[in-house]
């Protein structure tokens, strides 16, 4: 039987276990609605380091170590680390794990990195190429602002469609060792790069929503299921604007997503009190929401079948300055309690 279904999806013969999760967030996220679900809330965004970039690597390192410790798997039995972030050349990840001596795959999917990492890790394990894989993704508000926008101290206004980069890191360990009460990855749908011509760098939700729609729609088609199959369908960081657009696009196809569709960017901050406008964003947005909130909800069986869809806007500062439009991508991962 072929594992590949339809155009973009894979159904795993032996669903991969997510045996542990660990999450670290910055102080702002620690004041948000999901605070109780995170393992570590940092007292400040510098994390004892002297730059935002070093702080991000420290957060990545500490959270990976926490995940390994929680799993009780000896470090030499972790076959690979798959990790990515938003800093140039993925330095947030590579600098973090330079002392780990675990073989490393550095990936970039912008804010969809966590979904990309889980997908690749699941494929490797199902293919028999690894037993245990550590997957993580991180972002840092201050480091991202510095790299992508303006200096922190510059007096500018944020538009209502803009999102707030989440500071933190979410890690999980994928394994073929099926432990008790472990959510399992049953299927994935790999996204295509989709560009609907959005140029406003302050409206990432709108740039990524078509990719999210396309991936979720093809997931349903490839696996011959509908939205009612899942308890929750949750995208990565579309925020309020992108969430609304995805609902409208499904509405045009006469598919009703209203009941069970949400977005990590809407859950992680309280938009009324935290001044985050359209919501949270960044690699860490979906990564910490999954590793903190969703993983625990799955373990407690409050959620049993979710479709987790991290989303990414594939632009750079250079491409934006050259007037390029912003392509998006989304990776869907089906996670179920079996």
């Amino acid at each position: 039987m072929s594992k590949h279904c339809g155009r973009q999806s894979i159904r795993f013969e032996n669903p991969i276990a997510i045996i542990t999760s660990a999450s670290t967030v910055g102080p702002k996220e620690g004041e948000g609605p999901l605070a109780e679900y995170f393992d570590t809330i940092l007292p400040d965004s510098l994390c004892g380091e002297d730059s935002w970039e070093k702080a991000e690597s420290k957060i990545v390192k500490d959270t990976f170590e926490a995940a390994i410790a929680k799993s009780k798997i000896p470090i030499e039995n972790i076959d690979y680390v798959i990790s990515g972030d938003l800093l140039n050349q993925n330095s947030g990840s590579t600098f973090a794990i330079r002392n780990f001596s675990i073989p490393f795959w550095g990936i970039f999917g912008a804010c969809s990195t966590f979904g990309e990492g889980i997908s690749l890790g699941a494929i490797m394990i199902d293919g028999g190429f690894a037993n245990n894989i550590l997957v993580g993704a991180s972002s840092h508000f201050c480091a991202s602002e510095k790299q992508f926008r303006f200096p922190l101290e510059l007096g500018t206004q944020r538009t209502p469609t803009s999102t707030w980069t989440v500071t933190g890191q979410g890690s999980i360990i994928l394994s073929n060792d099926i432990r008790e009460n472990c959510p399992r990855i049953t299927a994935i749908t790999t996204g295509k790069v989709i560009d609907m011509g959005i140029t406003d760098v302050n409206n990432m939700g709108a740039a990524m929503a078509p990719a999210a729609f396309d991936t979720i729609y093809n997931h349903f088609t490839d696996l011959a299921i509908g939205p009612e199959y899942y308890d929750l369908i949750i995208t990565g960081d579309l925020g309020y604007v992108g969430h609304d657009l995805v609902l409208q696009m499904f509405g045009e196809k006469n598919i009703d997503l209203e009941k069970n569709y949400s977005d990590c960017g809407m859950l992680i901050f309280d938009k009324n009190s935290q001044g985050t406008n359209s919501g949270g964003s960044g690699c860490a947005c979906s990564a910490v929401t999954f590793a903190g909130y969703l993983y625990k909800k799955l373990q407690q069986h409050q959620l049993n079948k979710i479709l987790f869809v991290p989303t990414g806007a594939l632009m750079s500062q250079i491409s934006a300055q050259q007037g390029e439009t912003i392509p998006g991508i989304a990776y869907a991962v089906a996670i179920e309690n079996l």
């Binding site: 206004q157 538009t159 209502p160 609907m196 011509g197 959005i198 709108a206 604007v241 657009l245 409208q248």
Partner: peptide
């Protein structure tokens, strides 16, 4: 065509300042 249609949808759905 799709792009300009989407552009309109985005303009309608994005809150203004």
């Amino acid at each position: 065509n799709n792009k300009s249609k989407y552009q309109k949808m985005v303009e309608k759905s994005s809150p203004n300042t």
